[in-house]
Lab assay of single mutants.
Amino acid sequence: AVSDRLIGRKSVVMEAISPQNSGLVKVDGETWRATSGTVLDVGEEVSVKAIEGVKLVVEKLE
């Protein structure tokens, strides 16, 4: 599936994300709604860990 190619990809937070609120990330020039178990600020680099419905699950790059 097209979405499977996103797992493991680097992306950049475009709208802040917290455990309570989804935000936005940009992956390969496309904007996606995303969630995370931690707070992520605009501009942080993250990695796509999973896809749940139409949202990406991301975490901060170490």
Rank of each mutant, 00 (worst) to 15 (best):
K49Y: 08
E59F: 07
A50W: 07
E45C: 15
I7Q: 03
G23P: 00
D4M: 13
S11Q: 01
E44A: 09
I51H: 05
G53Y: 05
G23M: 02
R9Y: 07
Q20I: 10
S47N: 10
T35N: 06
Q20C: 14
E59H: 07
E45P: 07
N21Q: 14
A1Y: 13
M14P: 00
V39Q: 11
E62A: 12
R33T: 13
E30R: 09
V12E: 05
G29F: 05
S11I: 08
K10T: 12
V46W: 02
A16V: 08
L56C: 02
K26D: 10
E59K: 05
V25F: 02
S18C: 08
V48I: 14
E44W: 09
R9K: 11
R9H: 07
S36Q: 01
D41C: 14
E45L: 14
E44S: 07
G43M: 03
S18E: 04
V46A: 15
G23L: 02
K55Q: 15
A1M: 12
V25D: 02
S18L: 05
T38M: 13
G53T: 03
V54Y: 14
K26H: 09
Q20H: 12
G29D: 09
D41Y: 14
V57A: 05
D28N: 09
E59N: 05
V2M: 13
S47I: 15
V2L: 14
E45G: 05
E44H: 04
K55W: 15
V46K: 00
L61P: 07
L24V: 10
T38R: 08
E52M: 12
G53S: 04
T31M: 13
L40Q: 05
A16E: 07
V46L: 01
L24F: 10
E52Y: 10
E15G: 06
P19E: 05
V46S: 02
I7D: 01
T38H: 12
E44L: 08
L61C: 10
E62N: 11
L40S: 00
G29L: 05
E44C: 09
S18V: 06
G43T: 02
S47L: 15
M14N: 03
V54E: 15
Q20P: 15
I7K: 05
A16S: 09
R9L: 10
E44P: 01
N21L: 11
T31I: 15
V57G: 01
K26Q: 12
L24W: 12
V13P: 00
A50P: 00
E30M: 10
E62L: 12
K26Y: 14
A16F: 09
A50G: 11
S11D: 03
G37C: 14
K49W: 07
K49N: 06
V57K: 05
S18F: 07
R5G: 08
G29K: 06
E30V: 11
E62R: 11
M14W: 09
G53R: 04
T35M: 10
S36D: 02
P19N: 04
K10N: 08
T31K: 07
L40I: 11
T35V: 14
M14H: 06
E45M: 13
L6V: 06
V12G: 02
N21Y: 12
V13S: 01
S11T: 12
G23I: 02
V48L: 02
K55S: 15
S47V: 15
L61G: 07
V25Q: 02
D28V: 04
S22W: 11
I51N: 03
V58D: 00
E52V: 13
V58Q: 01
E62Y: 13
V27C: 08
E45D: 06
N21F: 12
A34T: 04
G37M: 14
K55I: 15
K55G: 10
E62S: 12
V13N: 00
D4S: 14
R9N: 05
S3G: 11
A34F: 02
P19S: 06
I17R: 01
V12P: 01
V27G: 00
E30Q: 11
V42R: 06
L24M: 10
I7G: 01
G8D: 03
S36W: 05
G29H: 07
E44Q: 09
V42Q: 06
L61N: 07
W32L: 04
G29E: 09
E59D: 08
V13F: 01
D41P: 08
G29Q: 07
A1V: 11
L6C: 06
L40R: 00
G29A: 06
S36L: 03
W32P: 00
K10Q: 08
L6E: 00
E62H: 12
K49H: 07
V42F: 05
R5V: 07
E59M: 09
G8F: 03
T35Y: 07
S36I: 01
V48H: 01
R9I: 06
G43A: 03
I7Y: 04
K49G: 03
S36C: 07
T35A: 07
T35R: 06
V2Q: 11
V13T: 02
V2F: 12
W32C: 03
L56A: 03
V54C: 15
G43D: 05
M14E: 06
T31N: 09
S47P: 01
L24A: 09
V2D: 11
E62M: 12
D41V: 12
L40A: 04
E15T: 11
I7W: 04
S22V: 13
D41A: 13
G53N: 05
G23F: 04
K10D: 06
S3N: 11
R5D: 08
A1K: 12
K60R: 14
